[in-house]
């Protein structure tokens, strides 16, 4: 690496941090390591499945920890085009 690049780049640590955060949030979900997230996932699945058919794997729950605020991200995939009237009636 040239002297110029050395002096003005931030190093590789931020990349490591970002890759780890993405990977671990995924792995925790898969392995059920994080208790809060896996129980939230179960609750959401139960609530949604009451109204629309929905599979276990299609509920994704992510938590980005931070200060002063954390973000809980919930993503539910439902197959096909959902008919709103029908779902309300069900």
């Amino acid at each position: 690496m040239t002297l110029w690049k050395r002096l003005f780049t931030n190093g590789s640590a931020p990349q490591a941090r970002e890759r780890l955060q993405i990977l671990l949030s995924h792995e925790r979900q898969m392995l059920g390591g994080d208790d809060l997230l896996s129980s939230l996932r179960e609750d959401i699945l139960a609530a949604v499945a009451k109204r629309v058919p929905c599979e276990r794997d299609s509920v994704k729950v992510r938590l980005e920890r931070g200060t002063p605020m954390s973000v809980l991200e919930i993503e539910v995939e439902i197959r096909g085009n959902v008919d709103l009237r029908m779902t309300q009636a069900a």
């Binding site: 780049t9 931030n10 190093g11 590789s12 640590a13 931020p14 490591a16 941090r17 780890l20």
Partner: peptide
């Protein structure tokens, strides 16, 4: 900056 920080 080439090592994960303690806080990270």
């Amino acid at each position: 900056g080439d090592m994960l920080k303690t806080e990270d």
